[in-house]
Amino acid sequence: MGKRNNAMDPAGPVSHRVMPMGALFLLIALALVSCRGGRTERPPIHLNPNMMNQARYNPQTLSRNPPDGVVAFGRDARADGVGRADLLKEGPAQTGRDASGKWVARIPAAVTGDFINRGRERFDIHCAVCHGETGSGKTVLTEKGLPPPTALIDARVVAMADGEIFGIITAGARNMAGLGKRIPAEDRWAIVAYVRALQAARRGVPADLSDSQRGALP
């Protein structure tokens, strides 16, 4: 009719003005809520830092130079990787060599199923990265430039004394760094046991088995 309805406010009823405002407010609130715990390079802010940072040295933080007249003593004090606990009772189980300096032929520990399983776990952690889970020496790293590591199932390794394999794990060989600092001696022997198990699994022949075991073969 061309005549304005006087009951209508020019900007529309109140509810029409409040609705977009409310929606906008809700959107802002939602956007803010999603900000919680977002990625930031800035360190956390602590409003009440009481005693959070105490006057002490935490592990693996930079320390001052040692005071005069003090000698370093600890697992890593010796450069050849023989740890402190090993130093206190140096013997074939810590060095892999017998009294005459020859590699010990057999693992100086009881080789049980648990021991070999422990060796498997440690092998998969520390060795499999380069030598492969089966000890084949073939991994993706050789494609990335790593010189091919020794295949642990090679006849050369099979012929080694247990002590020699232990010695190589401890001090390294060729391009391999020694792991003596990183793996306790007992675990290194367990790894030797598992390497022997890998070799047996790969190179074994039916003649290695007892009669009853052979009978169980499929």
Partner: peptide, 11 residues
């Protein structure tokens, strides 16, 4: 801490 600690990713 759900906001002040979570998300810290220093270079």
């Amino acid at each position: 801490p759900k906001h002040t600690e979570v998300g810290y990713s220093p270079k």
